[in-house]
Design a protein around this nucleic acid. Sequence first.
DNA 1: CGAGTAGCTTGCAAAATGCAAGTCACTCGT
DNA 2: ACGAGTGACTTGCATTTTGCAAGCTACTCG
Lengths: 128, 128
Amino acid sequence: MKKTSTEISIASGHRSACPVASVLDIVGDKWTLIVVRDLFLGKHRFGEFQASPEAMPTNILAGRLKRLEAAGLIKKEFYQDNPPRAEYFLTSQGAAFGPILNAMREWAEQYIPGVALLENIPSPEIRD
Amino acid sequence: MKKTSTEISIASGHRSACPVASVLDIVGDKWTLIVVRDLFLGKHRFGEFQASPEAMPTNILAGRLKRLEAAGLIKKEFYQDNPPRAEYFLTSQGAAFGPILNAMREWAEQYIPGVALLENIPSPEIRD
DNA sequence: CGAGTAGCTTGCAAAATGCAAGTCACTCGT
DNA sequence: ACGAGTGACTTGCATTTTGCAAGCTACTCG
């Protein structure tokens, strides 16, 4: 079984074998990490994400929730069938983004004047 | 001097007062952090960034270098006048992204199979 | 003296984003 | 019981960003 050089180490859907590039392939856009942040802040429902100060467009929010679920970072749980209503939770894989968000928070507090210094983020509810 | 509520704490060009959102306003896309990573890896010239395995389009690379310079994360230094040729260096503000990149690397190594585990990134050359 | 190179810029197609409106099955007030 | 309101989306379309390819300029090298 021979593999071409690019097949050896690049996970499917990723641009290169670099870990930084691979993370960006998942969350490298303006909105995805906003959703992850909201989950850390204890938000679980579509309307709660939508109500965040960044005012994310609803179609993009819907798309990001699907991508995050497909990537295994969050889990969707229906709490009612008709009409279908769901809540979203971080998986342990998603919760492991905590250090990344924290590093961003620390950078921003040091270099961007006027950011609201959120205190230490509460540990999120996890569903695997 | 009264200010409206949104003027009080949101730095110019940022969507909200949230530190995470503010960082994403600067580096929230597929490519910007790839350039920052390359700077950490000791690359300094246009052609070196372009030669990275992710194969960034040249127009996007040129745009990102301008944005990073405008944001104060990198500094452009001409090493020859005609034709103009420049090298790019991290500022201390840019170098402070190190912990963010490291947190991403650690996440990727744990959850994405097959990423190349770059060892500890060498401390970059800084120009302020 | 022609080919090659570094570092961009430009043009245009394709994809992602953003805004507004629409839908669907409820619930709540009167 | 009847219409208004709500939550969670989906759809349509304009605008913006991305991606690819080609071009350009002032060198350098054989």
